[in-house]
């Protein structure tokens, strides 16, 4: 009986929400393109190959972190420790990257391994205990920072091999390696999220955990994979950053988690789980990059930039909350 009412409400709500959803789906792309257009009119320096490459290069580290955290947020979780993982993986990789010691594969592999293990540890604590991911990763964020300082004895690890420095700082056929790695990572992450069983399960777990479980999905397996994946991507970002700045900094990546989460949210990933796309996150990261680059070019001080960025994040979430299905 009451169901009749619900159906009615749904119908009414439908047209209104469909309209807003339509705005949101293409709106992000539209907002991105129009901001780029406006900037290219205001300042001629914006729309040059060189400047665009700078933007994408600057964005790439944040985008990689955002891809990882998108997986996590889609399952209804959160990972605050990615910034610390950047430092841990960076320091670990740098330790093995001094000239004439190991081939370049070794520091990369060990750095990645460190991130994967760190992520797996997050997943393990989250699935074994009933502690919410926010608290667990808040803890491991601090643990990770401590580990980075311990491993580096609090000092930057410098004097790295040229081949290591090439990974994040070099160019192939004039294209910065960071951009190439970003494109490859984006492609792989998109396929994982949208084309594989585990990707589908991420949406299911975040959309309705109980229903996912009743459909035969092992929640703990999905969560373990998601946090491990996020750790792996954070480690990749850490290795690339270390290579780019040619130093393993124990203080690197501080606050990066917030930028990555912001990119995912601006890109339409709902913090309540169950929705989000890799394309959205990529555009979210690019949008952040374009706006801060534009504001730089317009000589707006970084103080104001932060106010603008914060406003954009809230705006994106407001749009998301009007958008969320099932909020009658």
């Amino acid at each position: 009986m009451e169901n009749g009412i619900n159906t009615y409400v749904n119908k009414v709500g439908h047209s209104y929400k469909t309209r807003l959803r339509g705005i949101n789906k293409y709106g992000l792309m539209l907002a991105f393109i129009s901001i780029c257009l406006v900037l290219s009119f205001i300042t001629p320096r914006f729309l040059t190959i060189q400047n665009l490459m700078i933007i994408v290069t600057q964005v790439s580290i944040n985008a990689l972190l955002a891809f990882g955290v998108t997986f996590v947020i889609i399952t209804g979780g959160i990972d605050l420790s990615i910034g610390s993982m950047v430092a841990v993986a960076g320091v670990v990789a740098a330790t093995f990257a001094h000239p004439d010691t190991y081939p370049v594969v070794v520091p990369v592999a060990i750095g990645l391994l460190a991130g994967l293990l760190f992520g797996a540890f997050n997943g393990l604590v989250i699935t074994r205990s009933k502690v919410p991911p926010f608290i667990v990763t808040l803890g491991t964020m601090t643990i990770g920072r401590g580990l980075a300082l311990i491993l580096s004895k609090g000092r930057p690890v410098s004097n790295l091999s040229d081949s290591f420095n090439f990974i994040g700082g070099g160019k192939i056929l004039g294209v910065p390696t960071l951009i190439i790695i970003l494109i490859v990572a984006f492609f792989i992450c998109s396929v994982i999220l949208h084309k594989t069983v585990i990707g589908r399960y991420m949406y299911a777990v975040g959309g309705n955990e109980q229903a996912a479980r009743a459909s035969g999905i092992q929640l703990s397996t999905v969560k373990m994979i998601v946090y491990t994946l996020c750790g792996g991507l954070a480690a990749l970002a850490g290795i690339l950053l270390t290579s780019r700045i040619t130093t393993g900094q124990p203080n690197a990546g501080t606050g990066f988690e917030l930028d990555a989460i912001a990119a995912a949210i601006i890109g339409g990933t709902s913090t309540s789980g169950g929705t989000g796309t890799m394309t959205g996150t990529l555009i979210g990261a690019l949008l952040i990059g374009v706006i801060s680059n534009g504001l730089d070019l317009l000589n707006v001080t970084s103080y104001y930039q932060q106010v603008v960025m914060g406003t954009i994040i809230i705006g994106a979430v407001v749009l998301d909350s009007v958008n969320r299905p099932g909020t009658e």
Binding site: N208, A211, A212
Partner: peptide, 21 residues
């Protein structure tokens, strides 16, 4: 609503969820 469905997913995604493999 609580145990049967994932409201934000499509009819297709809901239906194939238990037999995806």
């Amino acid at each position: 609503k609580q145990v049967g469905l994932i409201p934000g997913l499509s009819v297709q995604y809901n239906m194939t969820l238990a037999s995806l493999s």
